[in-house]
Simulated assay, not measured.
Amino acid sequence: MAERIVIAGASGFIGRYLAARYRAQGAAVSLIGRRGTDASWGDTSAITTVLDGAVLLINMAGKSVNCRYNTTNRAEIMRSRIDTTRELSAAIADCVSPPPLWINSSTATIYRHADDRAMTERTGEIGTGFSVGIATAWENELFADDLPATRRVALRMAIVLGNGSALVPLIRLTRCGLGGAQLDGRWFRAPSRVAAGTFHEFRARGGRQKFSWIHIADVMGIIEFIRAEPQLDGVINASAPNPVDNISMMTTLRRVLGVKFGIPTPRFLLEVGSALIRSETELVLKSRWVVPQRVLDAGYRFEYPDLERALVQIVNERRTSSSEA
């Protein structure tokens, strides 16, 4: 009988990838979500039925943070993470044969703006502000209940790169000649944004904010590695071992795409542009310097440890899929 893997929140880019990969390997994949799934949020008994006897639960549920951080969206970002994690915990508690491993999505944004040193699981410093508060509450909810038969991991993921990820708009901008660095600078301190913890403070100069990333194949690789290493629990960074800075990231992307120049984008244009596309400048201006020390120490070998190799694979995949369409 095929092993059963449950993925919650599989409608997003990462969840779809994981579901497809596990099915290709012969696993029986059950989904939990809002609609068109094997169990729906709010029906805890159905979720328990799906989880009972499963070998792995992966939870990727949560509203995308690629939005404006207004009052409504902030509340939904929090609710969509806390409520779903709480419901999964309650469902596992009711299982006769609970899943032995629960991997819950978290985020490398939990660490402070770091341009002085790398943040590891042991030495990393938790930051402040809205995004950090969301991540902290999310992880606290994961570990809140006593589930002695289920090992739990909060996977602090860096920006995930793949064909369909946040890289796609950067590729489009680069091909239009706008593939220069995203430059931080001073900006009007709106009292409401300061109070909500959503205002980005000017720190990094000249596009030197760190860019921590991971190829989606290594997200899958780390999940499988965690399954095979029972000593790995608690918080684990999921990021490539060789982060770069923003200017290097954009230079590498232009080289891979064969684009000779890229106009840098100063903060005032980023603020205007992010408002127009309903996003936030924090997503590109915060310095995320994250190293996956625990999986490296345990012996995980990355399929894509370096950015250029990862970008080449993704761009080639996009070209192949476009030519076949």
Score class of each variant (00 low, 15 high):
11 S>I: 10
11 S>N: 15
11 S>Y: 15
12 G>Q: 13
13 F>H: 14
13 F>M: 06
13 F>Q: 09
14 I>F: 01
14 I>S: 07
14 I>N: 10
14 I>Q: 06
15 G>R: 08
15 G>Y: 04
16 R>C: 07
17 Y>W: 11
17 Y>S: 04
17 Y>R: 11
18 L>A: 06
18 L>S: 07
18 L>Q: 03
19 A>M: 02
19 A>N: 01
20 A>Q: 06
20 A>D: 12
20 A>C: 02
20 A>M: 03
21 R>V: 00
24 A>W: 05
24 A>P: 01
25 Q>L: 09
25 Q>H: 06
25 Q>I: 01
26 G>D: 01
27 A>Q: 02
28 A>C: 01
29 V>M: 03
30 S>V: 00
30 S>N: 00
30 S>I: 02
30 S>W: 07
30 S>A: 06
30 S>G: 00
30 S>F: 08
31 L>Q: 00
31 L>E: 00
32 I>V: 05
32 I>G: 00
32 I>F: 06
33 G>D: 04
33 G>W: 04
33 G>T: 03
34 R>T: 08
34 R>E: 03
34 R>G: 05
34 R>K: 07
35 R>A: 08
35 R>D: 07
35 R>C: 00
36 G>H: 10
36 G>Y: 06
36 G>F: 08
37 T>F: 08
39 A>Q: 13
39 A>K: 10
39 A>D: 09
39 A>W: 15
39 A>Y: 13
40 S>M: 11
40 S>Q: 13
41 W>A: 07
41 W>Y: 15
41 W>H: 12
41 W>P: 08
42 G>D: 10
42 G>V: 04
42 G>C: 09
43 D>M: 09
44 T>N: 06
44 T>Y: 11
44 T>H: 04
45 S>N: 09
45 S>R: 13
46 A>C: 05
46 A>K: 14
47 I>E: 12
47 I>N: 10
47 I>M: 15
47 I>W: 15
47 I>P: 06
48 T>G: 10
48 T>C: 12
48 T>E: 13
48 T>Y: 10
48 T>K: 13
49 T>R: 15
49 T>D: 14
50 V>E: 07
50 V>C: 11
50 V>H: 13
51 L>P: 04
51 L>T: 07
52 D>Y: 06
54 A>T: 06
54 A>Q: 05
55 V>G: 07
56 L>E: 08
56 L>D: 06
56 L>S: 03
56 L>K: 09
57 L>R: 02
57 L>V: 01
57 L>D: 05
58 I>W: 12
59 N>V: 04
59 N>R: 08
59 N>K: 08
60 M>C: 14
60 M>D: 03
61 A>D: 10
61 A>G: 03
61 A>P: 09
61 A>M: 04
62 G>F: 11
63 K>Q: 15
63 K>T: 12
63 K>C: 10
64 S>L: 03
64 S>V: 02
66 N>Y: 15
67 C>M: 09
70 N>V: 01
70 N>F: 10
70 N>T: 04
70 N>D: 15
71 T>G: 00
71 T>D: 09
71 T>R: 12
71 T>E: 11
71 T>I: 07
71 T>F: 08
71 T>Q: 08
72 T>A: 12
73 N>Y: 07
74 R>K: 15
74 R>V: 12
75 A>D: 14
75 A>W: 02
76 E>I: 09
76 E>Q: 14
78 M>C: 11
